[in-house]
Design a protein around this nucleic acid. Structure first.
Length: 586
RNA sequence: UGGGGAGUCGCCAAGCUGGUUAAGGCACAGGGUUUUGAUCCCUGCAUGCGAAGGUUCGAAUCCUUCCUCCCCAGCCA
C-alpha cells in the first residue's frame, strides 16, 4: 500500500491533523525514552524513543467501562497503531476511596476484548498512577521550594468562599505567603499523618484573580487516611487529578494526551505545571500536550457513571452486564462485537462539537458486521401450529439450508420436515391486509427450503386466537429440485418441525429508555425508563441449535441476530436478541 | 455579566494555509436482483456551510458584529 492509499483509507480528524503536523515538524526527534516511565535524569542517557507517538488510555478504576470509553480506546490505541506508536493502559488511581481492583480486572478484559494490546516492542506499558506517588511527592516538594506551592489551612468552606465566582475575583488565602521552610515542614507533617482529613491542603500558587477558575491556586494534594487498593496504607496524602495527570503523562513520555472537552479549562494548568517541573529540572522537553475531543452521547442511552450505578443498584437492570446496559460487559452479553463497535466509532468520527449520535447508527453497525459473520439458523419466536394435511403422518424428509446465503463455502445443514410444523403467528392472517403476501386462506407460500403450500384453513379458540393453520403441499415444488420454480410465490416463510424443534428461552431486548435524551424533559431520567425493554419468550429452534453454547452467535432468519447467553445450561437454552433485521414491511 | 469551547443536509462528519459542480456514512425516498418484506446493486437527497455585513476576480474557508448551544466556582476525575 502506498502512502497515498493509506492516506485515503485513514479517517481524517483534527487530532490526526495535529499529529501529522507534529511529526512533520520533527517535534519528537530528540525525545529520549529509557523503556520505562521516569524523570528527566531517568531518560537523559537513553536512546531516542522508537515509538513515533505515545498516547494513553487512562481510566479511573472506579466503575465499568461503557461505549463512550470504547470511543476513547479506539481513538488512543488506533492512533498509536496507525502512527507506529505506543498506547499505554494506565489506571488513574489517585483517589483510594473510590477505586478497586475489581474494576482494574474488568477494564483490562474490556480493552483486550476490543482487540488492543498496550505492549510496544519489549515494553509492557501497563501502568498505575499510584506507582508515581513518590515522584509526585517530590514534585510537590520542588514546587514548594520554587515558591510555587503552599500549604493552606483554610477550611474547605473558606477555600470555596475565597475562590470567588465566575464573574468576580478570588481572595488570597491568609496562608499564601508562608515561608518555604514552613510549607516544607507542614507538607511533611501532612505526609507523616500528623493531621486529620481536611485539616490542610497543598495548593499551587498561581493567581487568585485569574478569569480561569482552575488557575486560582488549585488544590494539588489532600489528606486522606484511606487504604489504597495498590499502595495500602503507605500514603495518607494523595495527589489531585489536576496535579497527577500531567505528571503521569510526562513520566511516561506521552506525546498526545487526549481527553474529553470538560478538561479544556484545565489545559493552562497542565502546561503551567509541566513547565515548572521542567524549569526545576525534574522533567525534560518535549513535554506532553493535552488535546480534547467531544465525548459520546447516544440517543436512548445514559452514559454517566452516576446514572449507570443507580440503574444497577436500584435493580432497574440485572447488573452491570445486563444486555440493556451500555457497558462493554453488557454490550458483549447483548452480542455486540468489537468489530461492530469499531465500525461504529469509525462512522461517528472524532470532533469537538457536542453531538448526539442516533442509536440506529450503532445498531446498523452491528447489523453490517453480523450479516457477514453470522451463520443462519431458523427459530420460530411466536409459534402456532401448521399442519400439512396431505403429508403422511409418519413421513419426514431432509431439507437443505445454506449456512450463509452469500457464502457457499460455509456449507449447508439439514432440517427435518414433518407433517406438523411451528410457524410464526405473524405469518398467517385470517383476513390479509393490503400487500400482505404470507399465509392466508387460499394463498400459496413457500416453506423456506421445503415445499410450496396452499393454505386451506385454520382453527381458533373461543377468544378467536388462531391455534392451528392447515395447508396442503405441492409435491413437485421442493427447494433444490427441478420443479422448485414451477410455481411462483411471493411469500417465503420459515418453520421448524414440531417433532424435532428445541425449545429455548429468548430475551427480546429493546432500548432501555423511551426518549432520545433521558431526563431532558422529565423530572428524572428514571421517569423515561422503558418498562418494556425486556420481553422473555419461549421459542422453538431448529434441531441444529440443540448444542448451542454461550457466545455462539447466529442470524435467525427473518428475525435478527441472536447470541447464546452465559446462563445457558444443558436443559435450558437462553438466548439474547442482539438486534433485529431491518424491516421495510409496515 | 468572567473564562474556555462549538455551530456544514433529519443524525454524524470531511473540507476551513481562500480557487472548477460542498467528500463520505447513517437515516429517508424510488428502482433492480433475491427461496430472509434481509443482504446486495443503482438513483435521488445542502445554489447551501448559525445570521448579517465586509475584503477579494473568487469565501464554508479571511475580517467585523450579532445569535444559539456546551463546559468551569470538588480537598471528584
Amino acid at each position: 500500500m502506498s502512502d497515498r492509499d493509506i492516506k485515503e483509507v485513514l479517517p481524517s480528524n483534527f487530532i490526526r491533523g495535529i499529529i501529522d503536523r507534529n511529526l512533520n515538524e520533527n517535534l519528537y526527534q530528540n525525545k529520549r525514552w529509557s523503556g520505562s516511565p521516569g524523570t528527566a535524569s531517568h531518560h537523559a542517557d537513553a536512546a531516542i524513543d522508537r515509538a513515533k507517538i505515545r498516547t494513553r488510555f487512562p481510566p479511573e478504576p472506579n466503575g465499568y467501562l461503557h461505549i463512550g470509553h470504547a470511543k476513547s480506546i479506539f481513538l488512543n490505541f488506533g492512533l498509536a497503531r496507525d502512527y507506529e506508536g505506543a498506547c499505554h493502559l494506565r489506571f488513574d488511581d489517585t483517589n483510594p476511596e473510590k477505586e478497586d481492583e475489581e474494576y482494574v480486572l474488568s477494564i483490562v478484559d474490556n480493552v483486550k476484548w476490543l482487540g488492543f494490546s498496550w505492549k510496544f516492542k519489549n515494553e509492557e506499558n501497563l501502568y498505575y498512577a499510584s506507582n508515581y506517588f513518590t515522584f509526585m511527592y517530590e514534585a510537590a516538594l520542588s514546587l514548594i521550594k520554587s515558591g510555587d506551592a503552599y500549604v493552606d489551612q483554610q477550611t474547605a468552606e473558606e477555600i470555596r468562599e475565597n475562590r470567588g465566582t465566575l464573574t468576580s475575583e478570588g481572595k488570597n488565602s491568609p496562608f499564601r505567603d508562608r515561608s518555604v521552610e514552613e510549607n516544607l515542614s507542614l507538607f511533611e507533617a501532612m505526609k507523616a499523618g500528623h493531621h486529620p482529613d481536611g485539616a490542610m491542603v497543598l495548593r499551587a500558587k498561581i493567581d487568585m484573580a485569574s478569569p480561569n477558575i482552575n488557575l486560582r491556586d488549585p488544590a494539588i494534594y489532600r489528606i486522606k487516611h484511606a487504604e489504597h487498593h495498590r499502595t495500602g496504607k503507605e500514603w495518607c496524602i494523595y495527589p489531585m487529578y489536576t496535579f497527577a495527570h500531567p505528571i503521569e503523562d510526562a513520566l511516561e513520555g506521552i506525546t498526545h494526551s487526549i481527553c474529553t472537552l470538560e478538561f479544556e479549562d484545565q489545559r493552562p494548568f497542565y502546561d503551567w505545571l509541566l513547565l515548572k517541573l521542567e524549569v526545576n529540572q525534574l522533567l525534560a522537553a518535549p513535554l506532553p500536550k493535552q488535546y480534547e475531543f467531544a465525548r459520546l452521547n447516544l440517543t436512548y442511552v445514559v452514559l454517566s457513571k452516576r446514572r449507570l450505578i443507580e440503574l444497577v443498584e436500584n435493580r432497574y437492570v440485572s447488573g452491570w452486564d445486563d444486555p440493556r446496559m451500555p457497558t462493554l460487559v453488557g454490550a458483549k452479553r447483548r452480542g455486540y462485537t468489537p468489530e461492530g463497535l469499531k465500525l461504529f466509532t469509525d462512522r461517528i468520527g472524532v470532533s469537538k462539537a457536542d453531538s448526539w449520535i442516533d442509536y440506529v447508527t450503532l445498531e446498523d453497525s452491528m447489523r453490517e458486521v453480523l450479516n457477514s459473520s453470522c451463520d443462519r439458523r431458523v427459530a420460530v419466536l411466536d409459534p402456532i401450529k401448521l399442519v400439512i394435511s396431505n403429508y403422511p403422518v409418519e413421513q419426514e424428509e431432509e431439507c437443505f439450508a445454506p449456512n450463509h446465503p452469500q457464502d457457499e463455502s460455509r456449507g449447508k445443514r439439514t432440517i427435518k420436515l414433518t407433517r406438523e410444523l411451528w410457524i410464526e403467528r405473524q405469518d398467517f392472517m385470517i383476513e390479509p391486509e393490503k400487500k400482505y403476501f404470507r399465509l392466508y386462506p387460499g394463498n400459496q407460500v413457500r416453506l423456506r427450503y421445503g415445499y410450496v403450500v396452499n393454505c386451506t384453513g385454520y382453527e381458533s379458540d373461543e377468544q378467536g386466537n388462531v391455534t392451528t393453520v392447515f395447508c396442503e403441499y405441492l409435491p413437485d415444488t421442493k427447494s433444490g429440485t427441478a420443479g422448485a420454480d414451477s410455481v411462483k410465490v411471493k411469500g417465503n416463510i420459515h418453520w421448524v418441525s414440531s417433532k424435532y424443534a428445541v425449545p429455548a428461552q429468548v430475551n427480546l431486548y429493546d432500548r432501555l429508555f423511551k426518549v432520545e435524551q433521558p431526563g431532558l424533559k422529565s423530572a428524572s431520567y428514571l421517569d423515561d425508563i422503558n418498562d418494556k425493554s425486556l420481553t422473555t419468550i419461549t421459542v422453538q429452534l431448529e434441531e441444529n441449535l440443540a448444542g448451542i453454547k454461550p457466545m455462539d452467535q447466529f442470524q435467525f432468519e427473518r428475525h435478527g441476530y441472536f447470541i447464546c447467553d452465559q446462563e445457558t445450561s444443558t436443559d435450558n437454552i437462553v438466548i439474547n436478541r442482539t438486534v433485529t433485521l431491518r424491516d421495510n414491511w409496515k
